[in-house]
């Protein structure tokens, strides 16, 4: 199926989902849906580097937080431009600020993509566990930086006050939900396109055997940098609307370990070699987490993630997609 058609189908499903939620008319569904879709984007982002190229990134929370804090940064500028700009610039800046949310999402993606490029240059000569440790260290460095940067709230955190209502969409959470829905559609379409392109074949050779890839003419370093930029940018875009969703952000919530753990667990549970895996993993795991949050406690979330991850690593190392392929192959053989 061609990418434009595939994207149209995804958009149709997204529109149907949105309309169904509107018909039900419970705002909680939009809150829940936002989180689930956010994880679809996060899992897809992780999978571009982790699944396609085989480079395990433990620093996902750092990239997510770059998106979050890029929004805080521009929001704060919009709140008090007189503290930032000289007086003659205030009038033109009043036209630009406050920046609309879609622009903030793009900016979050740009910044996280740039940090991804920097991280790639610094760390991509490392392999396996060393790369993973380096990405974890990067997240810690970024958190320390944010904690000590008072303009974005430092350790005490920052408030973002979303508007009460938005034209067309009604409540602000519906607007946020639709934006995240579109972001999820875009990231899935991009992941599927990559997977089937020359780029995706190059990524797979890196995952399988980097020396053989180079010997076959694959420019591995360049491709890995492309992967870190794409993956970082998607993380940043997933994080950018978060301050508007949560209202109050502090470093602990933006750099929360749960993002890093879920970003790894969801593709692993779904399956890492195709775009479907992260989506399925994110839908199942984050829906489960939302149900548990309501019925038991949010503290159980990571426990569930951990247990499922252990179970899948032992019983189905190729995730649900791997299990599916295994079953269909067996059925066709018999």
């Amino acid at each position: 199926m061609r990418t434009p058609l595939f994207t149209l189908i995804l958009l149709a499903i997204a529109a149907a989902l949105y309309l169904a939620f509107r018909v039900i008319g419970n705002d909680y569904l939009f809150f829940l849906g936002y989180v689930v879709l956010q994880y679809v984007v996060i899992a897809t982002a992780w999978n571009i580097l982790g699944g396609y190229c085989g480079y395990v990134n433990f620093g996902s929370a750092g990239f997510f937080a770059i998106g979050v804090y890029s929004t805080i940064f521009f929001y704060n500028i919009g709140q008090s431009p007189e503290d930032v700009f000289p007086e003659f610039m205030l009038a033109p800046m009043a036209w630009i600020f406050p920046l609309p949310l879609p622009v903030l999402i793009v900016l979050g993606g740009v910044f996280a993509g740039l940090i991804g490029l920097g991280m790639g240059y610094l760390t991509l000569r490392l392999r396996g566990v060393f790369f993973a440790i380096a990405t974890l260290a990067l997240a810690v460095v970024l958190e320390t930086f944010i904690v000590n940067w008072s303009f974005v709230g430092g350790s005490r955190g920052a408030y973002v006050i979303p508007p009460e209502s938005v034209p067309v969409f009604g409540t602000f959470i519906q607007y946020l939900f639709v934006l995240m829905l579109l972001l999820a559609v875009a990231s899935l379409a991009a992941a599927r396109l990559i997977e089937r392109s020359r780029l995706g074949i190059g990524f797979a050779t890196i995952r399988d055997d980097e020396l053989a890839a180079e010997a076959s003419g694959v420019p591995t370093l360049k491709l890995k940098l492309i992967a870190t930029v794409l993956s970082g940018a998607l993380f940043g875009m997933a994080g950018a609307p978060f301050p508007f969703y949560i209202g109050y952000v502090e470093p602990n919530s933006a750099f929360n370990l749960s993002y890093a753990v879920n970003a790894i667990a969801m593709p692993m549970i779904g399956g890492t070699t195709s775009w479907i895996g992260p989506m399925v993993g994110a839908l199942i795991l984050s829906t489960l987490q939302q149900i548990v949050t309501v019925t038991i406690s949010s503290a159980v979330n990571l426990l569930i993630t951990g247990l499922l991850l252990i179970g899948f690593v032992i019983l189905a190392p190729n995730g649900l997609v791997g299990l599916w392929h295994h079953w269909t192959a067996r059925r066709s053989n018999s």
């Binding site: 020359r198 074949i201 190059g202 797979a204 399988d208 076959s216 003419g217």
Partner: peptide
């Protein structure tokens, strides 16, 4: 390249 078929292995140098 273990995740690919035999033909796909050959496709890599053809493409790259």
């Amino acid at each position: 390249f273990r995740s690919m078929t035999v033909a796909e292995n050959i496709r890599v140098p053809l493409l790259y």
